[in-house]
Amino acid sequence: MSALQAGVPVITIDGPTASGKGTIAHRVAQALGWLVLDSGALYRLTALAVQQQGVDPNDQEAVARAASQLDVAFQGDQVLLSGHDVAGLIRQESVGNLASKVAAYAPLRQALLERQRAFRKAPGLVADGRDMGTVVFPDAPLKIFLVADVNARAERRCKQLKEKGFSANLSGLLEDMRARDERDRNRANAPLVAAHDAKTVDSSNLSIDETVKLVLDFWSGACK
């Protein structure tokens, strides 16, 4: 990381799947006029590329190579993979489940580490994921660990999928989410855990606006 990058402020928002990280990160970034990094999208894009290219998902080095060769661009709500908008495809549960599996691979995490850090540009960055505060941006002046009850998260994800035209089964989502939480918390490489200096926010009973305000209030306090 360059000295110039080191001077760029970062807010990290980590947490389990469907805790609202992406929505909150985008809203906070919008309020501050900052850039945003959806790190989970990079893992989902890798999973999608593995599926589309017929890569063996159990071959860690092959998965890492696929990640290093991703032709990715983020343009507003569009997520472009080799020029095609795949924003909808990467939100499918099959892609999310595969992303959760391959995210435990050390070669893949290393392949994506510098690509994630390159998003750190002025005037600032809001980065969401599972290891943003612990591994990718350990020097971030504000780290949020966003949690929510697993039932509330499953209901949110079910609603999101149905709104986007995908079929969704609440009980199946709940089972998948619990399994994914278990994998994320217990993987050997960059497990899902709050940074020692992170502020934990439980969004189970908070609206999006209330959660965004809380994060912005924390940032105002960190700047004093």
Rank of each mutant, 00 (worst) to 15 (best):
K164G: 02
K164C: 04
K164V: 10
G165A: 00
G165F: 02
F166Q: 09
F166C: 06
S167Q: 03
S167N: 09
A168I: 09
A168M: 07
N169Q: 11
N169Y: 09
N169M: 09
N169D: 14
N169R: 13
N169G: 08
L170N: 07
L170K: 05
S171Y: 06
S171A: 12
S171F: 06
S171R: 12
S171D: 10
S171C: 05
G172Y: 06
L173V: 10
L174A: 12
L174T: 15
L174D: 07
D176A: 09
D176F: 03
D176S: 08
D176Q: 09
M177Y: 10
M177C: 12
R178I: 14
R178K: 15
R178M: 13
R178V: 14
A179Y: 12
A179Q: 15
A179N: 14
A179F: 13
A179R: 15
A179L: 14
A179C: 14
R180D: 02
D181A: 06
D181H: 07
E182H: 13
E182A: 08
E182I: 03
E182L: 13
R183L: 11
R183S: 11
R183E: 11
D184E: 09
D184N: 10
R185C: 14
N186F: 12
N186Q: 15
N186E: 15
R187N: 04
A188K: 14
A188Q: 12
A188H: 11
A188P: 10
N189M: 15
A190W: 09
A190N: 08
A190M: 13
A190I: 08
P191E: 04
L192I: 12
L192W: 12
V193E: 03
V193N: 05
A194W: 07
A195N: 05
A195G: 08
A195K: 10
A195I: 10
H196C: 05
H196E: 11
D197S: 03
A198Q: 02
A198N: 08
A198G: 09
K199M: 11
K199H: 13
K199R: 12
K199W: 07
V201A: 00
V201E: 00
V201I: 05
D202Y: 04
D202W: 03
S203Q: 11
S203V: 08
S203N: 11
S203G: 10
S204D: 00
S204G: 00
N205C: 05
N205E: 03
L206A: 07
S207T: 13
S207V: 04
I208M: 02
D209L: 02
D209M: 00
D209Q: 05
E210Y: 01
T211P: 01
V212K: 01
V212R: 04
V212M: 03
K213M: 09
K213A: 13
L214W: 01
L214N: 09
L214C: 03
V215L: 05
V215A: 03
F218G: 00
F218R: 03
F218Q: 06
W219M: 03
W219I: 02
